[in-house]
Design a protein around this nucleic acid. Sequence first.
DNA 1: AGCACGCCGACT
DNA 2: GTCGGCGTGCTC
Length: 707
Amino acid sequence: MAELPVQRIRVAVEAPQHSGLSGPLDYLSERALAPGSLVRVPLGRRELMGIVWPGEPDGGAEAAALRPILAELDGLPPLSASWCQLVEFAASYYQRSIGELALAVLPPQLRELDNTQLRARLKKLGKFLASPAEAQGSAPEAEEAPAGRPTLSPAQQQVLDELDALLDAARNSAPAPVLLYGITGSGKTEVYLRAAEHALAQGRQVLVLVPEINLTPQLEARFAERFGGSAASGGAAHRIVSLHSALTPAQRLRNWLAAHLGEADLVLGTRLAVFASMPRLGLIVVDEEHDPSYKQQDGARYSARDLAIYRAHQEKIPVILGSATPSLESWQRANEGRYKRLLLPGRIGGGALPRVRLFDMKRMPLSKGVTTALTTPLLDALRLRLERGEQSLIFLNRRGYAPVLHCAECNWKSDCPHCSAWRVFHKGDRTLRCHHCGFTERVPSACPSCGNQDIAPLGRGTERLEEQLQEQLPGARVLRIDADSTKHKGELEAQLAAVHSGEVDILVGTQMVTKGHDFRRITLVAAVNPDGALFSSDFRAPERLFALLMQAGGRAGRDAEAAARSEMWVQTWHPEHALYQALKQHDFEAFAKSQLAERESAGLPPFAHLALLRAEGRTVEAAQGFLKAAAAFAQAMPEAQGCLVYPAIPMSVARVANVERMQMLVEAGSRGALQRLLWHWMPELHALKREHKGLLRWALDVDPLAI
DNA sequence: AGCACGCCGACT
DNA sequence: GTCGGCGTGCTC
């Protein structure tokens, strides 16, 4: 037998960008290995999982220095070339190493397996797949009996026809991304379902992305009901799996394997699912595409929505972005004709949107002893709902009892010793809690500074609002839902069930309650203090506020019969503000137009492209010194032509857990210009870190959401 | 990132 | 005497 030459194999291993091992590494193997295969390789004294990466070995290292591949995980089909391409694109776009990103988006448990363990998992998966779909718990049971396929509204039919036409026209090229624009209750989900049916009927897999899985149980239930194998689905049962971080490691691996092996037809998941390996992928749906949680906020800061668009383009498959309040990025691309905008006007069943009423706080009589949040007209409106047996939702985006405790005598305030932020007063457990670093103390009975007994809460959070409602409306059943009331497993579900079953008259909550849930009996939604976002230094704050208020308003009047008398109240000191005026008319388009005009004249996204360099140091000087050196270097780079580096500024909460945080914005006219700058800048940033001793860490955020 | 090596301060 | 602090350097 002829001796086979030992060959170089390119392997992506989990080594971060700044380790000097930026690209895939070369190893030796006696046999050829298919790109996308999982292998175990030595790295230093460690032994890691790696992925045989497509492309030529770079030959950078001396052949004599190469080490052999230890083992191949041979029970799995290799990851596809297009999966590798997606990862490679994401790594380069968000400035991370290929291996770091590739391994980070695989199920954590897969990294630990050897061939024996893998075979055991696959065997278990086989059993799981053989069991009836209903018993798998991969999706919640539908609440109502399966209703089969509802008749499409003319608008839905038209949207689907246009979708068909789009796919026909695309043929061998990538169809344009579809922006499905329709208000809450307009029937977007049914469009997703029909599009999914279409793809499944052609033997393809479907990927559905949702912002947060526990906030969208209804969407999950709709898919499970339609495709989960019940008689009503009318055809072959399809396998649905979910992928999100709340799964146990074993479930996550199992579901990932089911997708990778092509056994799962539908994958429903959060942003991490955009990297699911799906060999037969035929459709991607991104629900609530504007939602900020599609942007990963640490590690590789990728946007799952943007990557979904890339992936669909690369695989030449349709992608549907759905929203009642699209991101201005997507809206602008639709304006430019790069996305196909499809509209679902009105609500299914002709239900009206709640009437929006703006209450000018400047004209409100201030009644003694009652804080201004619960105005007399609002209390009257709540009483009216109580009499009618209807529910109300009060939205206040601030948890806790009061954002700060204050001593009238010496002006002491409940600041956090470790952060530049106030500690929030939580009355329920009598604590002062820092929402940034978690530092918690029992609330003092007297002022810690001067001993004065008379320390008072300033401002209000959901806890206080709940208490005041109970005082003002004795007998009303008030329930608060926020991160504090739902921190234990199952509490959110239990509280939502209480609302659905009518055990609650008034629901108080943070933005948590504005997402996803259909509350059939709510006829009044009130935002008591939303003005903060109007004057935020973050240019995206108005966009988020508008989406939040539209979404909150959408909670009311889902029941057509109640819709006519449903109202959304906004208590504001600025009723004349364009945002509220647009909200009053339910006019997203007018809002988007005015915002886009502002963005264009200010040179902000989507008309410019941003990256944010953040630095954390023991001292302000350390963080600032690093950013200043980085800026000086960038300004001298020829590749920075046409890019603007802004001065470093402290982050809005400048100090967290005794770490000083600064940030610096980089603006470019095009993606290409920004990428060029970043590619030449990054190596220097790694080098600079060594020179700035007090610098703890730095991070680059490409296309940052919040600035 | 891990994980070594390496060179200085307070403990059984 | 050594245990351990984290600075510096390396990994195909």
